[in-house]
């Protein structure tokens, strides 16, 4: 298989709404390589979520082309190419953490004999070992979000799509989860698409930062990061980091999103 994981060419998406068409994506061109950590950043309404949903076959583009692992998004979905982590953990309150992680396995018809081992493995990846029998309401918000990441990892998709997964968490928990996510990414070699509003978060996590601008939603800059794969939290004070952050900020300004 080629190293192209997500390939978008001239992607367009217009929503028909009661008050006229909304141009959510216009002429989006992007290519994501295997093992990339791609962040999408931009002001509200610039189409970050829409782009991720197109990749996940949750929205149909109105123009252009997109392939995921060389297939159409619908085929990729059926081939279990990706796991999607939503902004809210969305765990079922009537299932334990283990039960929630088994949910996609049950739906996909993965043999029952494998479930226990898979659950144990992904719980370890997100550092939730020992919480299998707990119910979601017994966990903090950060732990719930980790459980939802574990669920997205449980069926071995090699792409992880995350839409502001830590948006509702406080800064300290966020830092910790970001560090863990980087560790997880290094260990598993997955390709990650990550939507965020935070410039430091985007720079800290990514190998590639996609800066977007609204009305119509489009990509205005794609920044390749040359930070080392090993990133302690204090890398955020290094000049390289600050230079990248500045470039992102300038890109956002140029897209006159924040004025």
């Amino acid at each position: 298989m080629s190293s192209q994981v997500i390939q978008a060419r001239g992607l367009d998406l217009t929503f028909r709404t009661a008050d006229g068409p909304v141009h959510a994506l216009k002429d989006v061109n992007l290519s994501v390589q295997r093992g990339d950590f791609v962040s999408f950043i931009g002001p509200s309404g610039c189409g970050k979520t829409t782009f991720l949903r197109v990749v996940a076959d949750l929205e149909q583009p109105t123009g252009g082309e997109i392939t995921v692992n060389g297939m159409s998004p619908a085929e990729a979905r059926r081939a279990r190419a990706y796991g999607y982590v939503f902004q809210a953990a969305g765990l079922y309150p009537w299932r334990t953490i283990g039960g929630n992680i088994r949910l996609p396995l049950e739906i996909m018809g993965i043999p029952r004999a494998e479930h226990a081992a898979r659950v144990a493995r992904v719980l370890e990846l997100v550092e939730l070992t020992g919480f299998e029998k707990k119910y979601p309401w017994q966990l903090s918000g950060g732990m719930q979000q980790r459980a939802s990441i574990a669920r997205a990892l449980s069926f071995d998709a090699d792409i992880l799509l995350m839409d502001e997964p830590f948006g509702a968490l406080d800064e300290i928990v966020r830092d910790k989860l970001n560090e863990e996510l980087l560790g997880l990414w290094r260990r598993t070699g997955k390709t990650i698409g990550f939507v965020t509003h935070s410039i430091p978060e985007a720079v800290y996590l990514s190998t590639k930062i996609v800066v977007m601008s609204p009305r119509p939603g489009r990509i205005i800059d794609v920044i390749e990061s040359d930070l080392p794969a090993e990133r302690p939290l204090d890398i955020r004070e290094s000049p390289e980091f600050l230079a990248l952050a500045r470039r992102v900020r300038d890109g956002l300004r140029a897209g006159h999103g924040y004025d």
Partner: peptide, 27 residues
Amino acid sequence: RMQLDQLHTWSASRTQVFGKLRLPASM
């Protein structure tokens, strides 16, 4: 919507959406 989208990403059938999500949620 999010919960339904979630099941869609796992390619759940209508019966599965009903049995795993709608029915328990309606209790």
